[in-house]
């Protein structure tokens, strides 16, 4: 009895056994679902590497003449100047020169006129800026290394301690410039501000070379500079990571 009943039911269900799948419907459902599922993004590390490489290539492509001239000038300074000249102050003043020379060009194509176009970029303005600043700082550190080596050869006295102090002091201006660059470019996005900061540095270097201010700076204990560099480095990293995560700049 039950067997007959089962057969009857199967007979009724048979035409509905294989429900044909509507491919179009399936695709539209998949697309709708995909739109709401979080998209997997590239990791920060990968993006940063890519942007950093791009920034270095761009700087090299556009500024190679300026950078090479600076390199030659600095080394001719160290070679030509007489032995009586005070190299220590020159070293302090010249370490952030790459930042000073090409820093203002960073924003040349990212000014306020470009805000709307920047919205269509794949990466945000802040991410591009962070990568560029790190690239410029790396270039400045390459210069710093070469200058440091030539300084060691140029200084006749074997005063390891004073050279060590100088090398630590040389990092301070680079870090200060990087922090200033980051804050200023985010806040103002204008080239003329950069001219003013360069002038400020020139004023400071004139004061350091002409007046006893340089000797006063050299007389400060090295521990202070180590601490100061540490604070600057920490704040730079913190600022960079904060800037990296900022939202896109919206118009109006």
């Amino acid at each position: 009895m039950s067997k007959k009943k089962d057969e009857k039911i199967l007979h009724i269900l048979e035409p509905h056994a294989h429900i044909p799948i509507n491919q179009q419907h399936k695709e539209s459902v998949a697309a709708t679902l995909k739109a709401f599922v979080p998209v997997s993004e590239q990791s920060t590390k990968v993006i940063f590497k890519q942007l950093f490489r791009q920034a270095v290539m761009e700087i090299w492509h556009r500024q190679k003449i300026a950078l090479c001239t600076l390199f030659l000038l600095l080394f001719s300074f160290y070679l030509i100047l007489p032995d009586s000249f005070d190299y220590t102050l020159l070293f302090l003043v010249t370490t952030p020169l790459p930042l000073l020379l090409i820093g203002w060009r960073i924003l040349e194509n990212l000014g306020e006129d470009m805000v709307e176009l920047l919205l269509t970029y794949k990466y945000t303005f802040q991410q591009l800026l962070c990568a560029k600043i790190v690239a410029i700082c790396s270039i400045a550190f390459i210069y710093y290394t070469f200058l440091g080596i030539s300084l060691i050869f140029a200084m006749n006295e074997n005063l390891l301690q004073s050279i060590l102090q100088l090398l630590i002091m040389g990092i301070t201006p680079i870090l200060i410039w990087a922090v200033v660059l980051l804050i200023v470019q985010i806040q103002y996005r204008s080239n003329s501000i950069w001219g003013i900061f360069s002038m400020g540095w020139i004023l400071f270097s004139i004061l350091v070379i002409y007046t006893p201010l340089g000797e006063m700076l050299l007389a400060v204990h090295v521990g202070f500079y180590v601490l100061f560099n540490g604070i600057l480095f920490f704040s730079l990293v913190k600022l960079l990571s904060k800037t990296w995560r900022l939202e896109r700049v919206t118009v109006g």
Binding site: M199, G200, L203, L207, L213
Partner: peptide, 17 residues
């Protein structure tokens, strides 16, 4: 900004003397 920088510089140079 330049006035702030100049004030700082005046302070530094006066201190030196």
């Amino acid at each position: 900004i330049i006035l702030a920088i100049c004030t700082l510089m005046i302070g530094l140079s006066q201190k030196v003397y």
